[in-house]
Design a protein around this nucleic acid. Structure first.
Lengths: 149, 149
DNA sequence: TTTGTTATTGAAAATAATTTTCAATAGGTT
DNA sequence: AACCTATTGAAAATTATTTTCAATAACAAA
């Protein structure tokens, strides 16, 4: 059994919730999904494999998984909440491509440090942050250059 | 006449749109508002001074002002779009206080530079970004310490 | 000034994402 | 097996945003 299921089980036991097939099935699908998935997308994937599971259950399960630390809610400001893997994925920022909509994960420890300093300078006590850089990814730049020639 | 009205007028003339009292009234109210205002809030302020102006007109005018560069749309990921002044305000990032909800504007040219470098390293062509640091502001820390003693 | 064209207004409706409700079901303890 | 109550899922509610459309008004041209 993958460790993710163990984490979910432990959380459920600890909180005196109930183990249900739906919860494990949603996790099963989420584990196989890459990248940053919206509820709408995820619930369609879930429906394919487990047609009986409704949108609301996916919605509630993802909130639960976020509580366990298995996933993270991310918001790229397009009016849709997305979920990304958090277990075994350390913190990172995002490059958001305006052309293809891809989200590229990046990390720079120096920037992280300087952010903390910047907050400290204002007497602000930070506990999380998000950095999103919007622009055009290398693939889309290449595609655009080809077309315009 | 404040320069902001001139900018709006110029834009309207250039695009062959029409000068209307509503548009100037919304700008008039927005100019006097500080910080980061939601459409809901702004439209209530507008209603106080100009009761005839409806929400939809405020909505459309703010989109127009965003086009002129007089305001900026900002999204702190709480499901509400906010508008901040852009004219005579240079780019900055935000400290978001979880306790009082205030948004503090900050800027660090070094971080800006490093962000560009980080993007460049991935072959990514950036054109904008947003950095939001969530936490507790100095005022709320002080208030909390007082209470807990 | 008047006329004609068409952009703008604003109430109401539509859309879209998220969240809640509630009756039926099912997990798990006794 | 019986009980309690968490969970499910369809439908409804909520919330923010966007569109529709008939009435109005801006402004160019006569």
């Amino acid at each position: 059994m993958r460790k993710e299921f163990q984490i979910l089980d432990d959380f459920i036991r600890q909180k005196a919730l109930r183990r249900t097939p739906q919860r494990e099935n949603v996790l099963d699908v989420f584990i196989r999904v890459e990248g940053h998935v919206s509820l709408d997308e995820l619930s369609r994937f879930v429906k394919k494999k487990y047609p009986k599971i409704g949108y609301t259950t996916v919605y509630r399960t993802m909130r639960l998984l976020a509580e366990t630390g298995l996933c993270n809610e991310v918001d790229f400001g397009h009016g849709v909440l997305r979920y990304e893997h958090k277990y075994n994925h350390s913190h990172h920022d995002h490059l958001v491509c305006k052309k293809c909509g891809r989200y590229i994960e990046v990390f720079d420890p120096q920037i992280e440090k300087m952010q903390d300093k910047l907050a400290a300078k204002c007497g602000f006590k930070p506990d999380s942050h998000r950095l999103q850089i919007f622009g055009v990814c290398s693939k889309c730049q290449a595609r655009y250059n080809k077309k315009s020639k």
